[in-house]
Nucleic acid binder design. Structure first.
Length: 836
RNA sequence: GCCCUCGUGGUGAAAUGGUAGACACAAAGGACUUAAAAUCCUUGCCCGCAAGGGAGUGACAGUUCGAGUCUGUCCGAGGGCACCA
């Protein structure tokens, strides 16, 4: 068999696509489709994860294009961030040069995958032409009150020497550096994302094309809880406001607990024993277990709080290590009988325990050493007695509000988004500090506030702060001297609106043009890793709302209509006898016995289980790499890289080519009507199924159908079907397979339909009348067990089926001397005899 | 601890409540060949020379004429949240 050189074909069609763009942008008549894959951080080279992400996206983009949609399929670079700064420091380079070099490499590599990306729309977040508009948006948001400055305890990453947002702290460690995060009190800029807490939660319901998993994660992250605030009076002190979701258990309250950062602690701020306690309370481990099982400790303030509903009763006030200042009010009432934490605490400090909820039925046995937090009936609670929990809540809140000692209150776990970073390689925050202490935005005419290129990255601290004169400026309105903000924006800000910029990436004076935005947004299909389920996706949802808040002409709330989260690319791991990781390349130099093979894990540099996409493309061609990435697993599940797999994909590409050669050189034969119909029906059915599978993102199943279809074609090369029908079927299949393996299929199509086929190419039409077979296979069951099959004309009657079924040896044998009590007949599917 | 998802051959996986294992990888056997490569075909657990039969989708129950699919309980793996009051 003749082999085709896929490298030549790859290059030929990549060049062709570069110079023959399907430029149907801005034709408002057509229905639009905005297909977007998460843009990459330009770290150096693309990895297999990118290949999978962009292969999936490209199938969809090309498919929708063939379907006649006006497709927006752009690409850009998330190009600000720490690695550039680190690399620059290590190699004494300019972060900009390092970044641009990486972008050039990765762009070349993406190009070699044959992606249908419109590179005219390329953007890069470290480009002043991009961040200029980000600064402008920031100023708009500041003016609308969506940017606030607060002094708070922040998460300080000692390795990156910067502040992290709550979302960026994972198990007490920095999300990138993995360093234990410290607490620091600093003045910082925040986006007021919590203003939209309720909306961000409520509108998850609108996202019908998002994975449930991601919506759930966001819901949990926003963490809404409904309860109330209650003021407790304390002799000689200000009232302490507590938050609770269980006001119904107020009669079981036997102590008050506050956070170590609570204002009431000022009373002891210079007492030795309190400082000792505070110190001990902050010493929590960083492992998950340590946090979960941390011992509950308290400091008795000596104060007594008046119980608001029990006359002459007072309860002790403790400072406790398990109360967080930044949730609710930083204070609670403890009800040990019905909250496990309170119970543990009460046991330790010998605090009274009063049961106020009786389990509804005796089914629930309450263990002696456990708090009961299930449903039940209120007891020991005067006017609440006999009510269920829900009614008791309503009643007590009513009483609390009547007494004016508190009110109904909803708390969210979601905090404002801290965006100040003490870094160089990020977007400068366009604010200035005046001599009189005021902080104001710079005049928009001065944008962009550019990063200086002459910075010293080697000294400690913030490079912009250390720069000799960058921060010295003048306030345009008054001409007075001023100092620039030297913090830069969290790089998650950059990626929170890039999908909007793609709608009008070249626009000079504004971040976006309303008309283009309204036409293209929302993104119809967004594709990326599930690791961004909270951070990036929540921030983007916030940004879309902020933009809408700034500009009432914008009607779009949700940026991403459809979301698809693809699985990771895994590979076996290898270790040598010393226990150090080996790459798949390196193991070739070892004997089998010298290597320990580990289970497949996500490809990572640290475990060295990576395969370089570029070298694979060089060996097998772009089509084979794409085909394999899509064929082995459902796109939302992890896939395991295998060299055999990609080699098989390469063979398939060759098979497609060779089939096409046979099709072109086939001798014409006269059709046998029966064969012709069988053939066309089968091909038509495959096309129909494949369309459905692509729509449902079952790309691996679509691929299985292609295997079957191609095999059928191979069979029919020598069967009595006319060339016209055969070639037309081949062309249809090549069009349908084009989104997957565009190079070879375009080559094949150009041979069948001539050079200018590409300008007319369309998704193959499906002939509905050819979707049903004339013959069906009916399953014969006895008591639900398969005993035989019947081939018959479609819509065969029950009587005929029964007669045919009884002719089958195996069926006859099993029915002999048995009484048939029931027959279940499902047309064209099944006959089931029930016998005794 | 709470919440979610998933358990199907040696492997990755298919399967609107209706023929379990499509499609692919690996393995074994065979065809072609002087030989190899390439290509193609067959097999797949148990009984049987075979025709055929039996078991079978993590376990146990249930609903149904019929369950991988629906319900319940349990076991196992993965993920998210985690002192959130």
């Amino acid at each position: 068999m003749n082999k085709v050189d896929v490298k030549d074909i790859d290059k030929k069609w990549q060049d062709f696509w570069s110079s023959n763009k399907n430029s149907f942008k801005n034709t408002d008549k057509k229905k639009k489709f905005y297909c977007l894959e998460m843009f990459p951080y330009p770290s150096g080279k693309i990895h297999m994860g990118h290949v999978r992400n962009y292969a999936i996206g490209d199938v969809l983009a090309r498919y929708k294009t063939l379907q006649g949609f006006n497709v927006l399929h752009p690409m850009g670079w998330d190009s600000f961030g720490m690695p550039a700064e680190n690399a620059a420091r290590e190699n004494n380079l300019d972060p900009k040069e390092w970044t641009q070099k990486n972008i050039a490499t990765m762009k070349r590599q993406l190009h070699s995958l044959g992606l249908s990306i419109d590179w005219d729309l390329e953007i890069s977040t470290c480009d002043p032409n991009y961040y200029k508009h980000q600064q402008s948006l920031f100023i708009d948001m500041y003016n609308k009150g969506l940017v606030v400055r607060k002094e708070t305890y922040v998460n300080w990453d000692p390795v990156e020497q910067t502040v992290l947002a709550n979302e960026q702290v994972i198990n007490g460690k920095g999300w990138r550096s993995n360093a234990i995060v410290e607490r620091k009190k600093l003045s910082q800029w925040f986006f007021n994302i919590s203003k939209f807490s309720e909306e961000l939660l409520e509108d998850l319901k609108l996202l019908t094309e998002w994975p449930e998993k991601v919506k759930l994660m966001q819901k949990n992250w926003i963490g809404k809880s409904v309860g109330c605030e209650i003021d407790f009076e304390i002799d000689g002190q200000e009232k302490v406001k507590i938050f609770t979701t269980r006001p119904d258990t107020i009669f079981g309250a036997t102590f008050l607990a506050v956070s170590v950062d609570h204002p009431i602690c000022k009373n002891f701020s210079n007492k030795d024993n309190f400082l000792k306690f505070k110190n001990k309370a902050s010493q929590v481990g960083t492992t998950e277990e340590a946090i979960a099982n941390a011992e509950k400790i308290g400091y008795d303030t000596g104060f007594r709080a008046k119980h608001p509903f029990i006359k002459n009763k007072s309860i002790p006030v403790y400072v406790a290590n398990f109360i967080l200042m930044d949730y609710g009010t930083g204070a609670i009432f403890g009800c040990p009988a019905h909250d496990q934490r309170d119970y543990d605490f009460a046991k330790k400090y010998k605090i009274e325990i009063i049961k106020v909820v009786e389990p509804k039925e005796n089914h629930e046995i309450v263990a002696d050493n456990k708090a009961f937090d299930g449903d039940g009936i209120i007891i020991n609670s005067t006017f609440l007695n006999g009510l269920n929990i829900s009614d008791a809540k309503d009643k007590i809140i009513f009483e609390i509000e009547k007494k004016k000692i508190g009110k109904r209150k909803i708390s969210y776990r979601l905090k404002d988004w801290g965006i100040s970073r003490q870094r160089y390689w990020g977007c400068p925050i366009p604010m200035i500090y005046l001599k009189n202490g005021k902080i104001v935005p710079v005049d928009k005419s001065e944008l962009p506030i550019m990063l200086p290129s002459d910075v010293d990255l080697n000294s400690k601290g913030n490079p912009l702060e250390n720069h000799p004169n960058w921060k010295k400026t003048k306030y345009k309105k008054t001409g007075e001297d001023a100092i620039r903000e030297t913090d830069t924006l969290d790089t998650f800000v950059d990626s929170s609106w890039y999908f909007i910029r793609f709608c009008s990436p070249k626009l000079k004076d504004k971040p976006f043009d309303e008309k283009s935005l309204s036409y293209w947004m929302p993104v119809d299909q967004y594709i990326g890793g599930v690791e961004h389920a909270i951070l990036h996706l929540l921030y983007s949802r916030f940004f879309m709302r902020a933009i809408k808040f700034n500009d009432e002409n914008i009607k779009i709330k949700e940026p991403f209509k459809g979301l698809f989260t693809q699985g990771m690319v895994c590979h076996e791991t290898y270790k040598n006898k010393k226990g150090s990781w080996l790459s798949p390349e390196e193991i070739k130099d070892f004997k089998k016995s010298e290597i320990t093979v580990g289970p497949p894990e996500a490809m990572s540099k640290s475990k060295k289980n990576v395969v370089d996409p570029e070298s694979m493309i060089k060996i097998y061609g772009a089509d084979a790499v794409r085909w394999f990435m899509l064929s082995d697993s459902p796109p939302d599940r992890d896939i395991q890289w295998s060299n055999d797999g990609v080699a098989a994909a390469h063979k398939f590409v060759q098979r497609v080519w060779s089939l096409n050669e046979k099709a072109i050189n086939r001798k014409n034969v006269k059709s046998l009507e029966e064969e012709r119909k069988k053939f066309l029906t089968a091909i038509n059915k495959y096309l129909f199924k494949i369309t459905g599978f692509i729509e449902k993102f079952q790309l691996n199943v679509a691929i299985a159908s292609f295997y079957e279809a191609i095999r059928l074609m191979e069979e029919y090369v020598n069967k009595p079907v006319e060339n016209k029908d055969f070639l037309q079927s081949q062309a249809s299949l090549m069009k349908a397979i084009m989104p997957f393996i565009p190079h070879i299929s375009c080559e094949c199509l150009s041979k069948i339909e001539g050079k200018d086929f590409y300008s007319k190419i369309k998704w193959p039409g499906i002939e509905k009348s050819l979707l049903t077979d004339e013959n069906v296979v009916i399953v014969v069951q006895i008591n639900g067990k398969k005993r035989g099959l019947i081939s018959a004309k479609k819509d065969i009657s029950e009587v005929d089926v029964i007669r045919e079924a009884q002719k089958i040896n195996n069926v006859e044998k099993n029915l002999r001397n048995k009484k048939i009590t029931k027959k279940i007949f499902v047309k064209n599917k099944i006959i089931n005899f029930i016998i005794k």
